[in-house]
């Protein structure tokens, strides 16, 4: 391999971005920590809110400049094909780590459903549970918890074939629309790209509104809350983290729409868009898992 045929790999000389990102992320979590501790201790006044505000702003602006810098460098043609492959690999492995994060919560759900509920009801060699909570009926969804005064069980749970089915349809559709938008980039059809990307964002936002309504309904009408025992715990943590990821994914797509409107993305140069769309597909797949294991096989009513 001669030197002429090797495309130089772009290594920025140095950068102020990461140190500000580190500072921002530290202040953010330190602020949240203070707020949570004050909340749980019942004390009012604290600097936590200000620390969080400063940290969030520092982190937000840093990430904004960071992504802006990367886009600018790409437009200046500083990136070789090898550099672009680095981004592709990195995004893939990042999504893998996100999958493993959800695995922890799915694992907790399966463990509780398949083993803990029975043990609490006195099955197997864990008999003493029966002495502790003699009136407890092992069932899923757990409508009445072993310790009834500390954890007040839900009156009802969300039926699977109503709003969750609608949300499934919304997200699966959005996976197709984002793919059509991707094809539009490949065809060089900007109008089509913008329309289908906007449709994807709209579907994501409708999903979030529906889920917001579902949460409101659960808290206000059904008595299903984070504090209503293990069913509420697993339900809200799984769907909640998914919702947070949908929010982030929608935000990424909105950024991509802004870039598409500014004339970014070519058929052979659209990694930002592709990364956002992979993330979106990942979020969709997680939802399908949630729909099956939390709702459909969740033992609750179908409402159909």
């Amino acid at each position: 391999m001669s030197e002429q045929s090797y495309e130089a790999y772009y290594v920025p000389h140095n950068s102020k971005l990461p140190i500000f990102a580190s500072l921002g992320i530290f202040l953010t979590v330190f602020g949240i920590g203070n707020i949570l501790n004050d909340m749980s201790a019942g004390t009012e006044h604290s600097a936590g809110m200000w620390v969080l505000l400063v940290g969030g702003l520092v982190l937000g602006f840093t990430l904004f400049y960071w992504f802006g810098t990367v886009i600018e460098e790409n437009h200046q043609k500083l990136y070789s094909d090898q550099m672009n492959r680095s981004y592709v690999w990195a995004m893939g492995w990042f999504i893998f780590s996100e999958v493993m994060f959800f695995m922890a919560f799915f694992g907790a759900l399966f463990y509780v459903r398949f083993w803990v509920v029975g043990w609490l009801g006195g099955e197997g060699d864990r008999g003493p549970s029966e002495l502790l909570w003699p009136g407890f009926t092992p069932e899923w969804p757990m409508m009445s918890n072993p310790e009834t005064d500390k954890f007040v069980g839900p009156a009802e749970v969300i039926p699977s074939l109503q709003l969750p089915l609608l949300n499934t349809a919304l997200l699966i559709t959005s996976s197709f629309t984002v793919t059509i938008a991707h094809h539009a980039i490949k065809e060089g059809n900007r109008k089509k790209l913008i329309n289908w990307l906007a449709a994807t964002i709209a579907l994501g936002l409708i999903f979030l509104v529906v889920q917001g309504y579902e949460y409101y309904h659960a808290y206000a009408d059904l008595g299903l809350t984070l504090a209503s025992g293990i069913y509420g715990t697993t339900f809200f943590m799984l769907t909640g983290f998914h919702g947070a990821h949908v929010t982030l994914g929608t935000f990424m797509l909105i950024v991509m729409l802004g870039r598409a409107l500014k004339g970014h993305f070519e058929a052979d140069d659209c990694f930002g868009f592709e990364a956002a769309s992979w993330y979106w597909h990942f979020v969709d797949v997680v939802w399908v898992g949630l729909f099956i294991f939390v709702y459909l096989l969740g033992g609750g009513p179908t409402g159909f």
Partner: peptide, 25 residues
Amino acid sequence: AGVVTMMLMDIHFATAFFDAGGGGD
């Protein structure tokens, strides 16, 4: 990250991941 998040929720938001009284373990 998942397991410390479960702890955080149990401590500050009354979830029941690790509390048998709420159906956890």
